[in-house]
Design a protein around this nucleic acid. Structure first.
Lengths: 214, 214
DNA sequence: GAATTAATTGAACGTTTGTTTTATTATGGC
DNA sequence: GCCATAATAAAACAAACGTTCAATTAATTC
């Protein structure tokens, strides 16, 4: 009927966040009811409104923090040097690692954009654009330096991001491939796709790799 | 209060289908109400149930016909010859053309799978798997023939499909690039990604293209 | 032109939705 | 041990949901 023994605002809010990410990722934002979310947390629906004023605000919070996390992860992973190949390599590694680790939140951030109000949508898209801009800059620098061979920077950036983010659709930890194997293969596919020169040689050629699997 | 002048079952059903594809693509299946759909068609909600017994059956019909259409389009576009490069090229061309032409239906088929009942989901996934299997076969044949250089066939197939299907996320007809330009660029990115040998030469090398845009 | 069938309306059904309000209890500081 | 406040329950709200039903009219058949 009222406050329960051992209740703690901080813990409850964290539990709500986690449960919401999982539920929205699996069923979709519209399909998840506040009562269902509350039940998952082990609380009454009304209690949720102590932490999030509306359902949409909850969705927005999840998305904003995911995008912020992605940006911060890249800031930490970004190499100091100017070599476009190293920078691209770091970008791919970071992107795949982050998206596999935060699979559910990524799903939410990519699939539920249409449930945001226009101004909140704009905020999230702005963050996404800033992140993608980093990749375009790397591709442009590499093309100008002659280490990449790229027809259209914007189009290549989109293709790479779709390809890398797509990992979360089929990748399941503990199945056929490890994160390291997937990352290695995606890295070599990326380097070929942008026509990267090898580090040592002078001629433009593809990265050659042993045929590991068929 | 009853049948309206000029009403025709065939026309109404088609109108419902089209309006549903557009509405679901823009707002999502759960967010679209039957009343809203009916209003878009210019009819009362009850009239919809003459053509589709439930909301989910409507969704399933849209998805099934989209997947059937994709399969049929590929059967028509598939080349007779055995050359893996030609077959891959045809696959890419067909995939991009079909997905750009049926952008909304593709969106629905990719995003609303979780709203299907388990057995309907299985049916759709079976169709999708069959279509993707064709790509894997091309890649495997190419790798065995030595015209492609591929680390992992399954992983490469998924990467390519994610990359190509991603076109519908950002492509808008009449903007910077034409369908032909986009297709050409994606074709060359694909050929590099699989390490395709050039048609004429003997050496393994990347397709070289003039730098059209930055 | 009567009989039949096809197409649709309008009203209603019971549920469920997001959210608000009010009351009640546990906790932490003094 | 009291007091303020943080955390929750329980009940209620109006609105919207998918769907059903009976009535009604247009088109078709003969």
């Amino acid at each position: 009927m009222a406050r329960t023994t051992g209740s703690d605002g901080g813990r409850t809010e964290a539990a709500v966040r986690e449960a919401a990410v999982s539920l929205i990722a699996r069923q979709g934002y519209e399909a998840m009811s506040m009562r269902q979310l509350a039940a998952e947390v082990g609380v009454q629906a009304a209690a949720l409104y102590r932490y999030f004023p509306t359902k949409e605000e909850l969705l927005f919070t999840i998305m904003r923090e995911h995008m912020e996390g992605l940006g911060e992860a890249w800031q930490k992973a970004r190499p100091a040097g100017p070599d476009p190949r190293e920078r691209l390599s770091a970008y791919v590694r970071n992107h795949i690692a982050f998206h596999i680790k935060r699979r559910h939140a990524t799903h939410v951030s990519n699939m539920e954009l249409r449930s945001l109000s226009p101004d909140r949508l704009t905020q999230i898209l702005r963050m996404r654009t800033a992140y993608e801009k980093e990749l375009r800059a790397i591709l442009r620098d590499g093309a100008e330096a002659g280490v990449f061979s790229i027809e259209d920077t914007g189009l290549t950036a989109m293709a790479l991001i779709q390809m890398m983010t797509g990992v979360i659709v089929w990748f399941r930890p503990g199945e056929r491939l490890s994160v390291a194997e997937v990352t290695a293969t995606y890295l070599s596919m990326t380097m070929r796709l942008v026509g990267a020169t090898t580090h040592t040689g002078e001629e433009r050629d593809v990265h050659e790799h042993a045929q590991l699997r068929s």
